[in-house]
Every structure is written in structure tokens, then in C-alpha cells.
Design a binder for these strands. Sequence first.
DNA 1: TATTGTTATACTCTATAACTATA
DNA 2: TATAGTTATAGAGTATAACAATA
Lengths: 148, 148
Amino acid sequence: MTDPVAALARIQELALLLNGDMDEGLAAFGLTPARAHLVGELRRLGPSTQRVLSDVIEVSPRNITGLVDGLVATGFVTREAHPTDRRATLVTLTSQGTAVTERLQLENDRFAQQLFADMPPRRLDALHAGLGDVIATIQALREAASRG
Amino acid sequence: MTDPVAALARIQELALLLNGDMDEGLAAFGLTPARAHLVGELRRLGPSTQRVLSDVIEVSPRNITGLVDGLVATGFVTREAHPTDRRATLVTLTSQGTAVTERLQLENDRFAQQLFADMPPRRLDALHAGLGDVIATIQALREAASRG
DNA sequence: TATTGTTATACTCTATAACTATA
DNA sequence: TATAGTTATAGAGTATAACAATA
């Protein structure tokens, strides 16, 4: 009989560990967490206006200006003229930016393999299912809360 | 047959969700994550010098000065004279600080109950065990990496 | 008029380095 | 000489508000 509080504590401990590792990994590539987030969305979306990035990342337009400034200075992205709207700029991954995001993805996948290499498939299935339940429950609780 | 990459992705998604919820919860009590961490250690350790807090939280002494400044300004802690070392100050939780940390603890526990209320005990056990394995594996990988 | 992105301003978290007061 | 905590300085992430250029 596992104590729910102990189970949550384990999730929280794991979140902390992964966060630390992730931030270190990003720093090794010259990225901060916030900039990596932006670069990741850019990879998913393709060239995007700052306005779109602001909506997707859920951060103020002013903040996007700062993040893009940093990424331009470190060579991950460029600002290009928008073809039809002269108010807007298109933020575009450089080849370096693309290469780094791809390597990050590969590292992440390799880490996943390492992490579960010794876990029996049954146990991995159970873990995956349990995590899915927890995520679903959190989302349900959120919706209930937001509906009042 | 669960894909390890999918399992890691779920852990990362969950970490993100919990982080967001946690930060919101703290903000509702007037605490930032960094200040909440300090207050939590203070609860665990009792009145402590800034030097000790710097070591425990693993953050520069200068940063502790800033965090304590903020917590003093918002009424969570006080700076008291150290009884024997006149260079040092003892950071002490106020009654408000104590009350808030206790409420945070209660909320966390209540959240854990809610989160797992509908999960069968077997499944909770499996999740708990799987998480323990993952944490142990990460720590082992870290040690291996730090030994070169 | 509404929208895009900027400048202006401010707060938090983080760091290193130099300095003061004490040990 | 070493330690505790500060001031000085700097960079990153976050926010709101005012403003320019453009739609």
C-alpha cells in the first residue's frame, strides 16, 4: 500500500532531477531553457512571426524580443523580412540552430534508451500507464478548477 | 511494448505540468519558487545563518542576501543577531512564515490524495516502484558520468 | 482602428569580484 | 589570515505601458 504523498514526492524528486540534467545539457549547447523552448517551437512550426511565438510560448511580446535578440546574437536564428506584412519579422532557424536542435533530440532519445535499458517491458508499460493516468487526472482537476 | 522515448516524454510532460501548478500555488501565497525553497529549508533546519543557507540551497551568498531581503520585506522571515558570531545573522521564520509553509505542506498532501484517489492500489504501487527505479538509474548514470 | 514589434521601466533569480566587519 | 555578509556590476527571464510603423 503506497502512500499517495510518497508517490507524489517521487514524481517531484524526479522532476527536479530531470530539470537539472536538462538545463545542464542545454547549457552545453549554449542554450538557456527559455531559448531552447523557443528554438524547439521554431523547429516544429518553421519560420514564424514573433507574434505567433508569443502566443505559442505564452509569454509577452516584449519577452520574445529579448529571447530572439539573444538567439540572434548567438547564431541560432535570424530575423527576416516578412514577405507581405512589413510590420512583422519572420524568425528563422539558422543551419547551426537546426543542427543543434537535432542533436538535442538525439541526445534526449539516447537518454530515454539508457534510462529504461534495464527495466522489464512489463514494468515500463505499467509506469507509462500510471503516468498517463496522473497526467489525465491533473488535466481533469485543472478543468474542474477553471470551470469554478 | 512501450517506447522508452514515449515514456520519457510522459515524465517530462508531467514535470512541466507539476511545475506550473506548483509555481501558481506558491504565487497565491506570495512566494516565488526560489523563496519557497529557502523557506522550506528554514522550516527543516530551524534558524540558520545565510552561509548555511547558501551551502544547502547551492546558490551564491550574494543570492541568499537577495532572497532574504525579499522574504524580510514580505514578512516571511526576520534577520536576528547571531548569539556568538557578530559577523553572522540568523534567518528565522516569522509566525506568518511558519503558518504559510504549513499550509503549503497541507495543500501538497491534499493534492496527492486527489491525484491518486481513483487509482487502484496495485497501479499506484507499480507507479511508485517504477519511479523509484528511474530515480535510481538517473543517480547511477550521474555517478558514472562524474567518475568519468 | 487594430496589430507588430520596439523602447522604457521594473522585479526576480542568478553569478563573480571587491570590500567591511569580525573571528 | 579566513569567514560572513554586503555593495557593485552584469546577464537572463519575466511583466506592463507607451509608442512607432504598418495594416
